[in-house]
Design a protein around this nucleic acid. Sequence first.
DNA 1: CTATAATTTATGTTTAAACATTAATTTTAC
DNA 2: GTAAAATTAATGTTTAAACATAAATTATAG
Lengths: 172, 172
Amino acid sequence: MKVVCQHAIVGRLFLPCSISNIMGLEQHIHQTNFRNEYQKVAINLIYTYNWMYERMKGIFDKEDITPQQFNILRILRGAGKPLSTLQIRQRMLDKMSDTSRIVDRLVVKALVQKNTCVNDKRLVDVSIMAAGKKLLEKIDKYNAEMDAIFNNLSDTEAKSLNKLFDKIRDGN
Amino acid sequence: MKVVCQHAIVGRLFLPCSISNIMGLEQHIHQTNFRNEYQKVAINLIYTYNWMYERMKGIFDKEDITPQQFNILRILRGAGKPLSTLQIRQRMLDKMSDTSRIVDRLVVKALVQKNTCVNDKRLVDVSIMAAGKKLLEKIDKYNAEMDAIFNNLSDTEAKSLNKLFDKIRDGN
DNA sequence: CTATAATTTATGTTTAAACATTAATTTTAC
DNA sequence: GTAAAATTAATGTTTAAACATAAATTATAG
């Protein structure tokens, strides 16, 4: 579940993000009936996303890290070598994310290092430091807790859900 | 689909909203295999949420309004009477959203009005103005476009999806 | 080789989330 | 009735999204 970490809460997205400034589904149900089943999917998607995000964030808060900062750390560990700001951003898949500034916050926390690339002085090699690796290992221990967020679903139900998710975005 | 509007993008929610600083599912699939089906649900939830959010935001951008600002306008129209900042926030269901400041931005745009409540001077009556109602009517016309985001699903599939969403959060 | 284009990072701005704190007002407990 | 508690809105701070622009460097075209 570490993946959830790669959020943007939410800002945006709705954001989220807030990731979470969304009306509760119950409240919606209470309030009005839905225009159709698709509108309900939209609301349920927002609401469930925020519901999950809150739980994920609770886990990250324990280690004093934001989901975005975690995501960058995870990408750097996964790469196994220094990455440029652009490479990090591409792996985050957010077109215009504030990678520079998030990396700078990780530098302040001494979790990553920045060095100008010798072959191309435009680039900055960002590498994870020992403290960053240690933090990630600590967070790895919450994997079971993160998976448990979806414990209400059976494995079969989770599979069905994943198929439906894929179908929504199919061909887009 | 107007409901989607009530997001937080994002913020960031994840977010944001983003809400959209999340790795793409394809990229994840390409990169590693999942720990289990639950981890895949988490990633799919984030990814699909951001996918939808981008499309919704495209619609709101046409009318130069943010999802959060739209959400407050919608709540005020739905109430049919002035609401206090707290009442608005409760209907947004986000515990600590920045309702004051979002309302102030709507005041600057002359879409809503603020008046100190006569019965309780602590309260502020926020009411939607004519320009705000006109804007909402304009946005109502995008409902079909918003529903079309989920056109890849049949009605039956949308119903299954909604049941699974509800089950995830069941008893929590 | 030099001028132009492209690339990359850094920085600026607005909006907002998520926290905390303060100030004004009202409620309550004595 | 007054002091303490509670409520509400406003404001402050950090983080980040989503845009834009600038500055440094490299690549390309002539």
